[in-house]
């Protein structure tokens, strides 16, 4: 395909004292794609991002941004990147415009160029009206827009976003997604961390699932889901027949078009080759075992299923649905 490598890491590792934050992290990001680092809190996503941003030195391994090593040539890297931090890293006592003017000077832009970019970016993130108000009067969504504007001011080749929609309401989330897609259209490479499955699924061209400081899976959401093999049929067993779940699971193992079976307290999740063939067999088996089914759900594999299959646990313990 001859795609340009925007970012490359090779056996990247970072330890804080005895604690290994990341280990053996190797991946590539292509120019112009939206690349996601998906994982639960503490998985090592932010550490990875901070190394790429030249804010942390890796304990081992290498990382380059457009061929420039983040440790050897940090200044070259800094000129290519924009950063949207996770915290609302905003100076409450400055206006939105003052934030952008400050950054213009820190990127050593001439004044008229800074002003031109500020006009353009404020329009893009839809913050023109409030640009001259103090940041402490901004809502969460507006602060996020300002964050994004700050990240875009250097006209970066790569934009790093740390949990871009954390804690935002649905409206603001969708709007931020929309901005990110527009950046991609402008040819900007986007690298983002997220612990929202739906965000990774809808937004990212490719993603790395990170857990415990290691990459567990890497690919496009579609590839990852296809790699899981087959669709998922979820059976919910009636309360009276709970004790039959095990025997039903055992008898299903003989069905040829079934690839994997996992039991849960209320029923069984079955990954099937083709639902048309598997479904009658499943119903037959349930009938034979005299196991009454309360609910049958069928769906294509979701990123959630990929995550559980790759890491052995859900991304969050209690599952506040991201949809």
């Amino acid at each position: 395909m001859g795609r340009t490598v925007a970012i490359e890491t090779l056996k990247l590792a970072k330890a804080f004292g005895d604690v290994k934050a990341i280990e053996h992290l190797s991946f590539q990001v292509w120019e112009g794609e939206i690349f996601g680092l998906l994982g639960p809190n503490g998985a090592g996503k932010s550490t990875t991002l901070r190394i790429l941003l030249t804010l942390l030195r890796p304990t081992a391994g290498h990382a380059t941004v457009f061929g420039h090593d983040v440790v050897q040539e940090p200044d070259r890297v800094r000129r290519l990147i924009g950063y949207v931090p996770q915290e609302r890293a905003i100076d409450r006592f400055l206006t939105g415009r003052e934030h952008l003017l400050l950054l213009g000077s820190l990127y050593h832009l001439p004044k008229d160029e800074t002003l031109r970019r500020i006009r353009e970016i404020l329009k893009l993130v839809d913050l023109e009206d409030r640009a001259d108000h103090l940041a402490k009067t901004y809502s969460g969504g507006m602060k996020r827009k300002l964050d994004l504007a700050c990240g875009l001011l250097p006209n970066p080749k790569v934009l790093f976003l740390d949990e871009p929609t954390l804690g935002l309401d649905v409206q603001s989330r969708l709007r931020i997604w929309d901005y990110i897609r527009r950046l991609k259209e402008r040819g900007i490479t986007v690298v983002m961390t997220t612990n929202y499955l739906d965000e990774a699924d809808h937004l990212c061209d490719r993603l790395a699932i990170i857990d415990g400081g290691r990459i567990m899976a890497l690919g496009s959401p579609a590839e990852l889901k296809a790699g899981l093999g087959g669709d998922v049929v979820s059976l919910t067993v009636g309360a009276a027949d709970m004790d039959r779940v095990e025997s039903l699971a055992k008898s299903l193992k003989a069905v040829p078009s079934i690839r994997a079976i996992s039991t849960k307290p209320s029923g069984i999740d079955i990954r099937v080759e083709s639902p048309e063939k598997a479904l009658p067999a499943i119903l037959d088996a349930a009938n034979q075992q005299a196991c009454r089914l309360e609910f049958i759900e069928y769906h294509r594999p979701r990123l959630e299923d990929v995550f559980i299959a790759q890491t052995g646990h859900a991304i969050r313990e209690e599952f506040p649905s991201g949809e």
């Binding site: 901070r50 941003l53 030249t54 804010l55 200044d75 800094r78 000129r79 990147i81 950063y83 931090p85 996770q86 915290e87 609302r88 890293a89 905003i90 100076d91 950054l103 820190l106 990127y107 050593h108 700050c150 250097p154």
Partner: peptide, 13 residues
């Protein structure tokens, strides 16, 4: 504490 320093340090200053 609020991350502003990191934002500054990610620029080529």
């Amino acid at each position: 504490e609020n991350g502003f320093l990191e934002r500054l340090l990610a620029t080529p200053i």
